[in-house]
């Protein structure tokens, strides 16, 4: 029998996983093209990280006392984490914009794996995070921040930050697919990130918080990743002997958090996407 389309000829040549990765890479390429043409994205990815580093370092730098390590060393990993976490909102906004345009019907009518739309979006965001981290590191370097934990640790630190961004993106994706308009997506995409990043050790030591907030802050995944990053970049925080597991073992806690978050929100977002239709 003659093939009924070109697709029919090629589709059977590879397995499901191959096509998922293939589709994700095509969508990632498409999203990076979109970012390239969007000046707002340039601002978020390049200018904002620089502003954040300089702002926190010079405005708060003198005012906040964090004990024996200098505030800048304390601060920079915190800003890394905050900025990477905020990139999760990009998934919310991007996917919601797709949902509200005709393109979603196109994707759904294709023989592609539709999870590739989500994965592709998040892979593209990962590329942006790499750029953002690079720029922030350079800015930090310019104002005197140094990596002093060794090369391997630093590489692990950066990888952990990217993995963190990836898992945050799935929460962002779920939010973006749950709300009706891009405006709501942009608000809702950021709203949850503020309490989460500020109720952590990103900018202030958790010891200063009242007890009930302190418990939240100590088990906050942001706290774990910030503590892990500080350790890996060579500025470990002092940990009291009675501190909870999350502070004693920040790297393991972070990895557990990343796995749990991704395991919950990736299938949730994929399911929401399959159910959703445009308009």
């Amino acid at each position: 029998m003659n093939p009924r389309s070109i697709t029919e000829q090629y589709a059977s040549k590879h397995g499901k996983i191959y096509w998922l990765l293939h589709d994700s890479s095509v969508i990632a390429w498409r999203n990076l093209l979109r970012f390239k043409r969007n000046p707002e994205v340039l601002f978020f990815d390049v200018v904002q990280p620089i502003i954040f580093i300089l702002l926190f370092a010079y405005v708060f730098g003198g005012a906040i006392d964090v004990g024996d390590s200098s505030y800048r060393s304390f601060l920079i990993p915190g800003i890394f984490v905050q900025t990477i976490a905020f990139a999760g909102a990009s998934a919310a906004i991007g996917l919601n914009a797709d949902m509200n345009s005709g393109i979603i019907d196109r994707f759904k009518s294709l023989p592609m794996n539709t999870t590739g739309v989500l994965l592709g979006q998040n892979l593209a965001d990962l590329v942006r995070s790499v750029i953002t981290l690079f720029i922030m590191s350079l800015t930090g370097f310019a104002i005197g921040w140094r990596i002093s934990g060794g090369f391997t640790n630093a590489v692990i630190g950066y990888l952990l930050l990217l993995a963190f961004g990836f898992s945050m993106a799935w929460i962002g994706s779920t939010i973006g697919l749950s709300v009706s308009s891009p405006q709501v997506a942009s608000t809702a995409g950021f709203a949850w990130l503020f309490p989460l990043t500020f109720l952590s050790n990103a900018f202030v030591p958790t010891e200063t918080l009242p007890t009930w907030l302190r418990f939240f802050a100590e088990w906050n995944p942001i706290t774990s990743i910030v503590a892990a990053a500080r350790y890996l970049f060579g500025y470990p925080m002092e940990v009291a002997p009675d501190a909870p597991f999350s502070l004693q073992h920040p790297i393991i806690t972070t990895i557990i958090w990343l796995v749990v978050i991704t395991a919950i929100f990736m299938p949730l977002a994929a399911k929401k996407f399959r159910k959703a239709t445009s308009r």
């Binding site: 070109i6 093209l33 345009s101 023989p111």
Partner: peptide
């Protein structure tokens, strides 16, 4: 509604969709 990506060029749209068509 024309279901193409407004932020891509015409050729980029078709190449993207072609690749998604395997």
């Amino acid at each position: 509604n024309a279901s193409v990506d407004e932020n891509l060029t015409g050729i980029e749209n078709l190449i993207m969709l072609g690749r998604l068509f395997r």
